[in-house]
Computed example of a mutant assay.
Amino acid sequence: MKKKNSYKQVCLFMVLFGLMLSNMANAQSSDSKNLNAWSTVSIEYKPNKKWSFELAEQLRLKENLSLVDEYFTELQTEYSVNKNFSLGAGARFIRQNDTEGNIQGYENHFRFQFDASYKHKINDFKLDYRLRYQNKNDLSVSSDEGDYANQHLRFKTGIEYNIKNWKLDPQFSAEIFNHFEKGEDGGFDKYRLTFGTDYDMKKYGKISLYYRFEKELNVDLPETTNIIGLSYKYTIKNK
């Protein structure tokens, strides 16, 4: 009976993802090109209860899934100070597809970030908060040529509701981005809303899917972006 219920949950998980993809594609008007897709595969290693290390590969598509936006390799680490508070850092090498302007093509970018996270539980709710400093730079252009690091402070808060005897617990998060860069006006420039769920296959890893909405701030014609995401993570724990 338990195996039958697990099979039904996996099927429902895939059906939900298919419906999300179909509805998002149908929602796009003929002159709109703001549907993106993000897919991620990662492996995580936990040598003990304090430390974790993760290597991820991600592919992002844009313009109604017709073009590659970017793909990257990312290495992250996290240290748990206690059961609620953790510190993290990460680095990302990015191949970004520039499809605007006179010079187009793939560019090399490098990004690093530092995180401080806090999580706790209230009854059946899990809440988490993350403050991130992010620094991204175009490796093909130097500061002498007018290129400076694109920096952000990001604050994210999330909530997950634990449904008894149900493995697809709903998750929601909201994040706001504060931009600052030499030679440009700073301030809040984007917010992000995400709704999703995941399915833990125990020793076979975890699958996650989500829908994400992004919108620019403090510009005359703010761009909105709809994102569908699917990720797989396999975790190795030191026994």
Rank of each mutant, 00 (worst) to 15 (best):
S143N: 04
S80I: 00
G146M: 06
K121P: 00
R60I: 09
S140T: 08
V81P: 01
G90E: 06
D31L: 08
N137K: 00
D138T: 06
G146Q: 12
A89E: 08
K49T: 10
P47S: 10
N48D: 15
K83T: 10
D124Y: 12
E74M: 07
S32I: 05
N84Y: 10
D98S: 12
F85A: 02
L131N: 08
Q58T: 15
T40C: 03
N123R: 14
V68M: 04
Y133L: 13
D69C: 00
F72Y: 14
F110G: 07
F93K: 10
G105Y: 01
K49F: 06
K62A: 13
F72K: 10
S39F: 10
T99G: 02
K49Y: 07
L87G: 07
N82D: 14
E44P: 03
F72T: 03
D115Y: 06
N123Y: 10
S142P: 15
S117Q: 09
Y106A: 00
K50I: 12
G105N: 04
K119A: 12
R60N: 12
A56H: 03
D31H: 10
L75N: 02
P47T: 10
K46T: 07
R132L: 06
S86A: 13
S66V: 01
V41C: 05
N135V: 02
F53R: 00
I43N: 13
K126H: 09
S142Y: 00
D144G: 08
I94E: 03
S80D: 11
N36W: 13
I94C: 03
V141G: 03
E63F: 12
G90V: 00
S86N: 08
N137V: 06
N108W: 03
Y79L: 11
F93I: 12
S142F: 02
S117A: 15
F72G: 05
S39A: 09
G88D: 04
F125I: 08
Q104L: 04
N64I: 07
N34A: 04
F125T: 06
E44R: 05
L67Y: 09
F53I: 02
W51R: 01
T77P: 05
